[in-house]
Nucleic acid binder design. Structure first.
Length: 966
RNA sequence: GCCGGUGUGGCGAAAUGGCAGACGCACAGGACUUAAAAUCCUGGGACCGUAAAAAGUCGUGUGAGUUCGAGUCUCACCACCGGCACCA
């Protein structure tokens, strides 16, 4: 920073008010039934009994930030962008009379702390606590109005006790397709063969619903029932290939694997099958998709979730295998192209491959499968890669025309989607076409493009069916949509297939081989026959704490580090604990609910409290924004509810936001929460790039440290700058130079109020006292604050601030500002709200007399943006004019009065053929005829219309005149 | 390839279909100062003019269209950003 004089003493003002807010608990949010101390400003504004039972509480507003992962690097300038936006809104809503819930906490489990532990032996909890302390100090130095009494960390046993509790709810529930809801597992009826004493064909493993699992040779009824229930739970166990990283000695989640290498360190990873816990998120695919229509999120975000869920409508069709009893079921979105199916493809992992491959093809098939398994997903799906595959030797019968078509295996067909098998229609599918071209398979046209010039080869859009007549069914001549319907109906009627919906969404792999995560509340019981099964621990056993270890490395066998703690793992009754831990996403799935009632020892959240904050009519008492487009209201039969505004980065578009919605919906089905969606309105803040327009990164050396900005310009300037940068949602480059612009603005606000001479005296006194350094503040906070207050009291108000009635022009300036700032805050347009404040201040600087009333309103308007400066000036005004108002954060938001903006004259632009020629002044009450007359009389307009025929004159009332000439 | 978004001065940006460029940065000139910093005032899209003005012409990625009137609406195209990517 240029070593210039401070615009104003923010270095004293900011710590002073931050400490005041904390000691007075100014930003405590009050729960229903909670007694509010009489001297708290909330009580002064709303009444001491406003939250008492049976009283109608003030409307709530729940405004939430995505809580940060407290990394060792500390805060970067991207964090405060969202936090400032939410804080401004929180302060604005508080001033508008809402009971505002604005909490902060820590998403504190995670790999970095664990890796540090592996390297140094320092317990991850210690690392985590240090990082939280840094983050908290940095966040608090920005003056956010968080209710810190609700602070939580996902790593607190009091918190993850309830994460484990929710897991038990998932474990003890199943999804009932008939009610389309999660229900307690007890409501699950056993199939007929498990109801009597007979031992039936029960599947012994997680059942994917295709009824194909092989029955165990011998099981008694009890264990068969057990297995059946286990296969239906929302939390279940299955054997899954996962990413294993030898160098890191751990398994990695998909999102930690980038381009076939570990995101951390760039080490190679391999697929390895392991026993895993899964969460049945796929059961909710339909609801997760359709309920997007009921919430106010950006189009792009909703689209990302839609793509991730990936719904496609189509049909399943059974193909008889030639010469065998087995059938192959395929999924297709284009049943209308069935006549063009000239071959079939199975995924190499498809379970029928073994059965159908002929002897002469066996070796080729086996070789191909071998190669496929070794390939990573990346290699399999790599862009523009050549198609590969081998013929199995077997044939299938096309059910519509009886044709014998070859069955291939190829890795472009994924085992995990649909049925793992496709009918290939090379004429009308790009991938099938490539494959057919490479292996010389026949290509038969069955769809005619509407435009006859379009080549039908590789034509994948809708058209008209051709060559589609078989012995029993014909769809030739039908448009695609109708052809689909007709063929689907025929398939269904003949038992050959049925309409279905498929989703790309997969079940959520929920276990990690980590130390620093929530242990599962699960034990394994080992039967005498060598069989073992899992059982839930009772709620009374929660929280399940992780054992203390000295070595955090995963074991050589790939077992989780928890397995090292033998005393912890082995229980007296011979059972053993589950040694996996939950993924980092678990804690963030429900933290917004814990904030509501973070100290509750008896429930994850109290019922009444949940209902007040999540489903009382906050939106109705004050619409978020009347002007907002696309704000869904009352969609799907219920008023949108939940968190009123959630702000965070796009990086969580599909994972956190999908997982949290899923958990919330399960809790809703089970009756624990009162809304089907957690987040009513969600906004993604845009990325802040480096000064060079590149993404900020250490390697580029363009990272801006918030602490530096704070030291040079203060928190208020930092807040203001982040908001003035541009629209919240946009990506925008950082510019330290531009910080000076808003910093100067705050200096002008300061000089609008204070007497310059007294400030000079203050500066001399400060130099003598030597308290100018920020460093001394932490040492003796109280001493610092009283010294700072004494110094600041030397600064007096400007003598032209008087208790006089404001002039009409002054009121006009003020109310234009009130209007603009209010509307812009409702629309989250912080940058233009700030420019409106600048316009006001620029104007007010020229006033020879400054009415107190106007300046007080100004401070209420500025308070959300620059709270420290506003508080200091507010205090000075109150002192000088002996006022005893509410604490500034609770002072009512000024009400815009349109009558004050009325002018006696208005300016009307006059156009000739749409081109501006003059701006005329007419009386405010002039009617259209008078305006038209004045426009034609204008001297500047005359030359353009003289001698021309006037074809038409458009007068937009009070707005504009356009004279159209020939 | 598919989906979503964005294109406006030297820069960040602003404009319910109605005066394009508010507000701010940078810049230039002036005031204050021994001087500098800070502060205050003034100027500014481009072109063409002029001693200086005025007037005029052009101008919101490109090309068409709708309209009395388009940065804004429609269509096509181009560029950039983000997401997904053999999902049948």
């Amino acid at each position: 920073m240029a070593s210039s004089r401070r615009q104003y003493p923010f270095h004293l003002i900011e710590p002073k008010w931050q400490q005041y807010w904390e000691i007075q608990q100014i930003f405590r949010a009050w729960n229903p039934g909670e007694p509010v101390p009489e001297n708290h400003p909330f009580a002064q504004r709303h009444g001491a009994h406003s939250m008492a039972a049976g009283r109608k509480a003030p409307p709530k507003f729940y405004i939430l930030d995505m809580f940060p992962y407290p990394s060792g690097a500390g805060l970067h300038v991207g964090h405060p962008e969202g936090y400032t936006a939410t804080d401004i809104l929180a302060r604005y809503k508080r001033a508008c009379g809402f009971n505002v819930l604005h909490p902060m906490g820590w998403d504190a489990f995670g790999l970095p702390a664990e890796q540090y532990a592996v390297k140094t032996g320092q317990h991850p909890r210690q690392t985590t606590e240090q990082n939280i302390a840094t983050f908290k100090r940095q966040i608090q130095s920005l003056g956010f109005s968080y209710d810190w009494s609700r602070e939580l960390a996902t790593t607190d046993p009091d918190y993850f006790k309830w994460t484990q509790w929710i897991f038990l709810k998932l474990y003890n529930s199943w999804f009932n397709p008939e009610t389309n809801k999660a229900e307690p597992i007890e409501t699950l009826k056993y199939p007929a063969e498990l109801q009597s004493g007979s031992v039936g064909r029960a599947s012994s493993r997680a059942d994917s619903g295709d009824g194909s699992s092989v029955a165990s040779p011998h099981q008694n009824l009890e264990s068969a029932r057990h297995a059946y229930r286990d296969s239906k739970r929302l939390a279940y166990v299955s054997e899954q290939p996962v990413w294993w990283c030898e160098q890191l000695g751990t398994v990695l989640a998909n999102e930690e694997v980038v381009d076939g290498k570990s995101e951390v360190g760039g080490f190679p990873v391999v697929r390895k099958p392991m026993r895993q816990w899964m969460l049945r998120i796929t059961a909710y695919a339909g609801k997760l998709l359709s309920d997007l229509d009921t919430i106010d999120w950006s189009d792009s975000l909703k689209e990302m979730q839609r793509n991730w869920i990936g719904r496609s409508e189509g049909a399943e069709v059974d193909f008889q295998i030639f010469g065998q009893t087995a059938k192959i079921r395929v999924f297709t979105t284009r049943p209308d192209t069935l006549f063009g199916a000239t071959y079939m493809v199975l995924a190499p992992e498809h379970r029928l491959v073994d059965e159908i491959a002929t002897e002469d093809r066996w070796q080729a098939v086996e070789d191909y499968r071998e190669r496929t398994v070794r390939k990573s997903d990346l290699e399999r799906t790599e862009l523009a890669k050549e198609k590969t595959g081998v013929f199995t030797g077997a044939y299938a019968i096309n059910p519509v025309n009886g044709q014998k078509i070859p069955i291939w295996i190829a890795d472009y067909v994924l085992a995990s989607y649909g049925t793992g098998a496709i009918m290939a229609v090379p004429a009308h599918d790009t991938r099938d076409f490539e494959f057919a071209t490479k292996f010389n398979l026949p290509v038969v046209q069955v769809v005619q493009p509407l435009d006859p010039k379009t080549d039908w080869r590789g034509f994948v859009e809708d058209g008209t069916s051709v060559n589609s007549t078989g012995p029993e069914i014909s769809i030739t001549g039908l448009p695609t949509a109708e052809a689909k319907k007709k063929i689907a109906a025929w398939l269904e009627a003949n038992g050959l297939g049925r309409k279905t919906v498929n989703y790309k969404l997969r079940d959520w792999l929920f276990s990690r081989q980590r130390y620093w995560g929530e242990p599962f509340p699960i034990v394994w019981k080992h039967g005498p026959d060598g069989q073992s099964h899992h059982e839930a621990l009772p709620e009374s056993a929660l929280p399940v704490l992780p054992p203390e270890l000295t070595d955090y490395k995963p074991t050589a066998t790939g077992e989780p580090p928890l397995a090292r703690a033998k005393d912890w793992v082995n229980l007296p009754d011979g059972s053993t604990r589950e040694t996996n831990t939950m993924p980092q996403w678990a804690g963030s799935c429900w933290y917004y609910l814990r904030y509501l009632d973070s100290k509750n020892a008896y429930a994850f959240v109290g019922k009444e409290v949940e209902s007040y904050w999540m489903s009382s009519r906050g939106h109705q008492s004050a619409p978020f924004s009347a002007t907002e487009k696309n704000a869904p209201t009352n969609v799907g039969g219920y008023t949108p509810q939940g968190v009123d505004l959630y702000v965070g980065g796009t990086e969580h578009a599909v994972l956190h936001l999908l997982y949290a919605r899923f958990w919330h919906k399960v809790l809703f089905d089970l009756g624990y929460v009162s809304t089907p969606e957690p987040f009513f309105k969600l906004v993604n803040q845009g990325l802040i790039l480096g000064e060079d327009g590149q993404k900020m990164s250490k390697s580029r050396g363009n990272v801006v440290n918030p602490d530096d900005i704070l030291a040079d310009y203060g928190a208020d300037a930092f807040r203001l700058y982040e908001m003035f940068l541009g629209p919240l949602q946009d990506t925008k480059p950082w510019s330290t130079r531009n910080v000076e612009g808003v910093y100067r603005f705050l200096g002008r606000v300061w000089r609008l109020f204070v007497d310059e001479k007294s400030e000079t005296e203050f500066e001399q006194a400060e130099t003598t006292a030597g308290t100018s350094s920020r460093a001394c503040q932490s040492a003796e906070v109280r001493g610092f604050t009283s010294a700072a207050t004494n110094l600041l009291n030397l600064i007096k108000l400007d003598s032209v601030i008087k208790d006089v009635t404001a002039r009409p022009s002054q009121l006009k300036t003020l109310h234009a500002c009130i209007k603009k700032v209010t509307e812009d805050l409702d629309g989250l347009r912080f940058n233009t709200a700030i420019s409106a404040l600048m316009v006001f201040v620029n104007e007010a600087m020229t006033w020879e007399t400054k009415p107190v009333s106007v300046l007080r309103d100004l401070l209420v308007l500025i308070q959300p943006f620059a709270p420290h400066l506003a508080e200091e000036l507010w205090a000075k005004l109150n002192l000088a004019f002996s006022l005893q108002p509410l604490a500034l954060p609770y002072a009512p938001w000024p009400k815009f009065n349109p009558a004050l903006l009325v002018e006696s004259e208005m300016e009307i632009p006059v156009q000739v053929n749409g081109k501006l020629r003059d701006v005329i002044k007419v009386p405010a009450d002039a009617d259209n005829a008078a305006i038209e007359k004045a426009a034609k009389a204008s001297e500047k307009v005359q030359p353009f219309i003289a001698g021309k025929t006037i074809k038409k004159i458009i007068v937009v009332p009070k707005k504009l005149v356009n004279i159209v000439i020939g």
